[in-house]
Design a protein around this nucleic acid. Sequence first.
DNA 1: ACAGTTTCTGACCGATCGGTCAGTTACGGT
DNA 2: ACCGTAACTGACCGATCGGTCAGAAACTGT
Lengths: 188, 188
Amino acid sequence: MSTHDDLRAIALAEFAANGYAGTSLQRIAEVAGVSKASVLYHFSSKEALLEASVGPAIDRLTTIIDAVDGTLDDREARHAFVEQFVDLLLEHRLEVFLFINQGAGLEDVPVVDRANLVVERLAQFFCTAASTTEDQLRFGMALGGAAYVLSVKTQPSPRELPVDEVRAALVRIVNELLDPIVVVAGTR
Amino acid sequence: MSTHDDLRAIALAEFAANGYAGTSLQRIAEVAGVSKASVLYHFSSKEALLEASVGPAIDRLTTIIDAVDGTLDDREARHAFVEQFVDLLLEHRLEVFLFINQGAGLEDVPVVDRANLVVERLAQFFCTAASTTEDQLRFGMALGGAAYVLSVKTQPSPRELPVDEVRAALVRIVNELLDPIVVVAGTR
DNA sequence: ACAGTTTCTGACCGATCGGTCAGTTACGGT
DNA sequence: ACCGTAACTGACCGATCGGTCAGAAACTGT
């Protein structure tokens, strides 16, 4: 793999493990086996490195949400969305973990604002769709809980469980949480 | 309120909002309206400030877990535990949020290790009690999801919803997730 | 009014932070 | 063999980090 891609992957892992503020460029350089100056040659700043790390995952989430826009009251469409969402979580665990952890504290960082925006859009869908307090909590627990349980590190972790099994079970649980919700028509 | 307690409260809020590494003693001092040296007069180090911030919440969680030890196969006991757990989350949102975010990256910090230990104990209960992949995910989503949904900041946030309603709904949802689990006897 | 203790502060320390820059090394095309 | 470019580095910058310390200010009991 190229140095460029190496750095992006290492940065993502380090940011997720130790937080954005808690990860120094020096540390990333050491893990990659290059100098700090070399890191800043490939990425113009620490922020650019963060952008490169989480940007693609955010783009994908945006795409998924665009597709489901306004179809939340349809049960079939919602089930399809859940599958795509779970797949996203499974393929981008580190990015999700990083965003969950740092999303609140890193405002005014462009890429994080972009992420917060798309998540807020998701929340808006669900808050307008769900009328009661319980239904809002259901949405939050279904999506946030799924994101959290996959990203958190425990022993034994879902990481080590068979992926297919995790995916199937997670889709089932999330749908189980979402199905009882009374969706008001015309969520948009 | 005393300066000492002020500082503890402010530190907790800042740590939760910007992360441990992302929060400087200078910042805490400014918010409190005192000098940085004064902060270090009340708390011998930044780590001691973290300890004072989250220690009590960890102690309480330990107490709750001690009480439920070995009784997870009893449905009634589990429901009682869920209520206590939800109450803990509601009363210590900032601490929970802080731990969720920083727990992974702040190893070797005594108070965080203490927190990780008690959470691992909780996970052990559930992993030995739950046999299948789905059941383990159920436990994770029920407890982790509940913790996450209460600590995350969204618009409108659970923070602003009536507490009683949130508590009742959350207890219901968590139990709904946990009840289908086939618990193997003798969780110890 | 005085003395003793608690509370608080400005100045300072070495270390590390993100970032810059001049210059060196490695390499592909001709 | 030469050259242009891409990749990389060591040295350095100002700022900020957590932490120390001597002493000022504020409060206490007598």
